[in-house]
Design a protein around this nucleic acid. Sequence first.
DNA 1: TCGTTTTATTTCATCAATGAAATATGAGCT
DNA 2: AGCTCATATTTCATTGATGAAATAAAACGA
Lengths: 174, 174
Amino acid sequence: MASLGKCIQMMDEGIGRLGATLPGMPAEQARLSRLMLMTGGRLQEELELTLHPHKLNHSEFLTLMILYSRPDGRSTPGELCEYTSQGATNMTRIGNALVDRGLVVRAPCREDRRRVEVHITAAGRRFVQKMLPTLFPRVSAMFAGFSDHDRRHLDRLLRKLAKNLDHLHDPEAA
Amino acid sequence: MASLGKCIQMMDEGIGRLGATLPGMPAEQARLSRLMLMTGGRLQEELELTLHPHKLNHSEFLTLMILYSRPDGRSTPGELCEYTSQGATNMTRIGNALVDRGLVVRAPCREDRRRVEVHITAAGRRFVQKMLPTLFPRVSAMFAGFSDHDRRHLDRLLRKLAKNLDHLHDPEAA
DNA sequence: TCGTTTTATTTCATCAATGAAATATGAGCT
DNA sequence: AGCTCATATTTCATTGATGAAATAAAACGA
């Protein structure tokens, strides 16, 4: 696997030559897109690599973390679908996987019995408290050398990009 | 599919509560990781959506673009593997797909006949010249409202992040 | 009560991507 | 010539994810 640095260098040269021959090309924006795709992709690999020993995939991890970080530790499959960008079929599967491991339980919802409530269990909380800190050193290392200023800038720019991406599909939404 | 904005809001609340209960958590770095994962993922979906009508997947597109942007329009499977992060088996498949569509041709390499040279064809060039500009409006829209300053900042910060990610796996490499 | 809608699950079918190992060919060295 | 390494392809298998449609149960409205 080539280093990101190598790939980026390659990309820089390529876009340099491309911009010279294709009139009207937004070269700087294209470069930023590629940078986002490359670093984002590598970051995701990194996360999945770290999750693997804990037998979690990204969706399961995300689902569990949503539940853990909720004040009441619960949600419904429908809501979880929303925030994890998963289909309903998949969310049932994710729920099954987490239930099988005793990390969450399902319970019928009192107010609306069509719904199901997914609760994180005490074992689920313990699991998160053990596994999450193993991510901390890696996350810190990723942003080594970033000043407070850098972090605020990156935060701001990524949110701006996210907003533009939202507009791309639904120009009306906030 | 929930908007990125909604997901980010959710994430902010979650990390806020998490940071309060888990001592030693690098909350700001975690937030940036999530932002990178979310926006990077959405950006990738965006790209693949745009590529789909042209019957290209990401790897095929990348491979074709590398060839197109080379001064001599050629490379070898091995080198292409490097820069696309694909295995050799996959690169053979990608080559087959592009050859079948007449966008590239394979030729034996004169200096080292174990190698194969992959050349972009005239039809391949025409294809790129037609399809690539269809991406321009989207790419521009993604970075709408970004000043030159913003773009330079984002560029710099992403490269810094990329370098850190490289170090994470090979602390010796440049 | 009946019909419609919402919510979740189950069933079934893919589909896409990937990759390890065996194979074929040629380079390079002694 | 004979051995080892490098390069690409082929074969075979798997995994992993994903999702459409049918099903079940309950809310909601006329």
